[in-house]
Design a protein around this nucleic acid. Structure first.
Lengths: 217, 217
DNA sequence: GTCTTCGTGGATACACCGTACGGTAGTGAC
DNA sequence: GTCACTACCGTACGGTGTATCCACGAAGAC
């Protein structure tokens, strides 16, 4: 079976899922495919172009959720699909917002979002649309990024509370004991572990409500 | 003059400002300081610990803006200072949200934000606070990241419109000509170049209004 | 059949990276 | 003087992305 961009992207995604973005190298991909490293350069000019390729494959799955008749449910569905994609492919969160996403499927997602938002009440002109899209994307990027790194540190320290206190604890508890960070201490100690998905949806609704209800600046 | 963590962090920041995070290496820092590469490991255990160090130096400058009597102006000032810091040190945006920021100054900024938000109307319990802080940080991270990568691509293609059309244009205009992305095309072609700072402040206010006005979930 | 051409696949090489390791020189204790 | 110990640093290893060069095999000309 001959090599192809699709096949390269697929195994790159598999490797990145397993070992993270740092553990991904052209040589390992080539070895996995049973070819020499330079063989990949016939299909991809750069490492970063390969990353763009991987990103767009993920966007393809996000775009699959399609658009609904209601603008709000379209936006919600796309945002949730983006979050789920990032949880499935954590390296995607590392790349999110880091370079312009101009692949065809990324553009399709952007188009669906933009078209939906343009029908939202309160979005009157093209300037409103640009701002609203910016707010939405900023929130999605930041929220997904935060959640993924939170999950990573939780996993690396161990899920249970005791292990966390033992690993990151020494430094952090010492810091909190100084009394200089009372509110943070309260959050760390008393804060319940909120459901991440619920929090995401709650704050996403907050942003959407702000977009629709905000008077023109 | 003896070596120190501060001195190492300072030259690392200088180099990162000049050549980006990818252009930053322990060897170059060491060479700049006139020492062997291994010398740095007496002060820093890791490359990533060095990055944490750099990040916290930037947070120190953000924390300097201090807290105001009004919770809202505190949050606004910190957010704007974060944005400005990221525009001055673009690598900071690359690291934002990518790892937990636990340095003393980062904690101070988090504390100031959390304390301010806890006084906001609509933030009733610790759960509300956690969510509100999450929404605020998510927006800041995403917005800053977006703006920095936008600025980077604008700079790499050349500031003026013509150069952009010439470099990224061939692919992008071809894509837009397909008619599959009408809303995006409208944004690219008709969209005015909104003032970035104004947009940031506008959307930040949107998020803060949402935090204060949203009924409990 | 023989020779030439050509394009594709792969090996090798280079510059650079983070970091482990081993030695060495200098200082203080007895 | 001798020894122990510490602070420092040069060298080396395994890895990375990528440029260059080469070998080989298939296709066509005569």
């Amino acid at each position: 079976m001959p090599l192809s961009r699709e096949k390269i992207a697929a195994t790159a995604i598999r490797l990145a899922d397993a070992h993270g973005l740092d553990g991904l190298s052209l040589r390992k991909i080539a070895k996995e495919l049973g070819v020499g490293p330079m063989r990949l350069y016939d299909y991809v000019t750069n490492r970063s172009e390969l990353l763009d390729l991987m990103v767009d494959v993920v966007y393809a799955r996000i775009a699959d959720v399609g658009q609904h008749s209601e603008w709000r449910s379209t936006v919600l569905t796309i945002a949730q699909a983006t979050r789920e994609a990032a949880l499935e492919h954590e390296w995607f969160a590392d790349l999110l917002g880091g370079r312009p996403h101009l692949g065809p499927h990324a553009l399709a997602v952007g188009e669906a979002n933009a078209a939906a938002l343009s029908e939202a009440p309160g979005v009157r002109g093209i300037d409103d649309l640009q701002r609203a899209l910016g707010a939405l994307n900023a929130f999605i990027i930041g929220a997904v990024r935060r959640e993924v790194t939170e999950r990573r540190t939780a996993r690396s320290t161990g899920t249970d509370e005791a292990a966390f206190q033992a690993s990151r604890g020494p430094y952090l508890t010492r810091m909190l004991k100084t009394g200089r960070y009372p509110t943070i201490a309260r959050l760390v100690i008393d804060g319940a572990h909120l459901n991440a998905e619920e929090t995401f949806n709650h704050n996403l609704a907050l942003v959407l409500d702000g977009i629709t209800s905000r008077p023109r600046a």
